[in-house]
């Protein structure tokens, strides 16, 4: 199933307008000129401005910045924001956001998936609605909001 959702919720717009900033030292960054080949795993937020090839497993937020690219078999994180290139299977326990500059090929799974206008996406969208009670609210919200077009 290929889904084309050319709108995103106002909450997601807000989130994408204000890039996440963490003041703690738990933030990691793969710079624009950097290339990582191999397995990346761990805790904390990660911003990818460069290139990552390999598997990515993160207990934290993953941001693929504009100009950044990730080519992985599997990408697992708590939440994912994509403004760059991503190829692979994305599994998030929280929301997945595709910004206007995102180019994504692969399957997306998250509690909520938002796709901004201008984003390119080909693959399967999987919002799990049989989530536990505390996550169910977000998932249902995503279902009611996602198909609305502007």
């Amino acid at each position: 199933m290929v889904t084309d959702l050319s709108s995103c919720t106002s909450v997601a717009r807000q989130l994408m307008a204000q890039p996440r900033t963490t003041t703690s030292g738990a933030e990691s960054r793969i710079g624009g000129a950097a290339r990582v080949r191999g397995r990346v795993q761990g805790e904390g937020d990660l911003i990818v401005e460069g290139h990552v090839e390999g598997d990515l497993t993160l207990r934290g937020h993953l941001t693929v910045a504009e100009g950044g690219s990730v080519a992985c078999d599997t990408v697992a994180a708590e939440s994912v924001t994509i403004a760059g290139l991503l190829q692979g299977e994305v599994t998030a326990s929280g929301p997945v956001q595709l910004g206007a500059t995102a180019r994504v090929r692969g399957n997306l799974k998250g509690s909520a998936v938002t796709i901004a206008e201008g984003a390119h996406f080909s693959g399967r969208l999987d919002c799990d609605f049989d989530l536990p009670q505390e996550l169910g609210g977000t998932a249902r919200e995503a279902r009611t909001k996602a198909p609305t077009r502007r």
Partner: peptide, 10 residues
């Protein structure tokens, strides 16, 4: 970052 493990090449 402190919690991150990379097995591969940078």
């Amino acid at each position: 970052g402190a919690g991150i493990i990379i097995e591969g090449e940078i």
